[in-house]
Simulated scan of single mutants.
Amino acid sequence: MLQIKVIDEEEVGKASDFIAQLNNNEESHIGYCGKDKDEIAKYMMNEISDVNYTESFVVAYEGSELIGILGFDADLEDNSAEIWGPFITPNKWGIVYDMWRRMTDLLPSGVDTLEMFPNMKNTRVFQLAKDLSFQKYSDETVLLYERNTNDKLNHCTVEELSPEYYTDMKQLHDSVFPSAYYNGQQIMKRLNEHRKVFIIINKGVFAGYIYVEAEPEFGEASIEFFAVEDAERGNGVGGQLLKGALKWLFTFEGMESITLCVNAANVNAINLYRKVGFQYLHDLCSFTKEIR
């Protein structure tokens, strides 16, 4: 007998293991979600905070067997929610619309926009997004830099962001990424020993920044954003920022690879990443839908 219900706290371990298994397969991969079960569990319990996961995720059981998980990570300040999944056992996909209705019943009134981020090989979710009238926002390419190429990183002159350059960094970020999942102020609030902004100052002038996040516990890290002032482009600032960030990230033991996501149409950026040493990993597609 099929049962679809809101997740309980004691199910988070089983749920994170289920997500990890499916998210390691490109045919069921969702870009928002991790691939390590412990990392996923930690994120669900600690980072999904605007609406707790016990009020935003639903699970589907056939008898005692877990066959599906679907949820959202709400950002009430931005009035949006990122959809986690659907993660469903492939031969049970027919339950997806029942799960979707159950999950959307949990959405708070403050959420106006839903976002989906499936791998392009995840044809089921790709089609679901279209069937639910989501609009395609962008194509994204994910690139990977592995530790065994770390010897290619030469000396670079980046420095950690200091208060005197907060305004410069926020203005550049918000102008280059006006609709990003973090604005400049939100990045400032996230900074800690594992989340850093590095900058380059040329002759006393702010030239560019890069924001990176490390998860040493899981041996993972990501380059979230970086941008260069118009007047400084073509001067090697982008390459220096990337190399400086990579050198810092690889100071953590167990950090074997770094990923970043870039708009697939941004050929210049992709060429820069490849020049530094990044390799192609996979393609994702961003969908969005206004629901209010």
Rank of each mutant, 00 (worst) to 15 (best):
I4D: 04
I4N: 01
D8Q: 15
E10Y: 15
N23H: 08
N24P: 06
S28R: 00
H29N: 11
G31W: 14
C33P: 00
G34Y: 02
K35V: 12
D38R: 07
E39I: 00
N46F: 00
T54M: 03
V59T: 12
V59H: 10
A60E: 06
Y61T: 07
G63N: 12
I67N: 05
F72H: 10
D73F: 05
A74H: 02
N79L: 12
I83W: 11
I83P: 09
T104K: 08
L106F: 02
P108M: 06
E115F: 14
T123F: 13
R124I: 05
R124Q: 14
R124C: 05
V125D: 10
Q127W: 04
L144Q: 08
R147D: 04
N150M: 15
L153M: 11
N154C: 11
V158M: 08
E160P: 00
S162A: 15
P163R: 03
Y165W: 08
Y165E: 01
D168T: 02
F177W: 03
S179F: 07
S179H: 10
S179N: 14
Y182A: 02
N183D: 14
G184R: 03
Q185K: 03
I187A: 06
G208S: 05
I210M: 04
Y211C: 03
E213H: 06
E215P: 10
F218A: 13
F218M: 03
F225N: 10
F226R: 04
E232D: 08
V237L: 06
L241P: 04
K243L: 06
G244I: 06
F252K: 08
M255G: 03
S257F: 00
L260D: 03
A264Q: 01
K275S: 13
K275N: 12
G277S: 00
G277T: 00
L284Y: 11
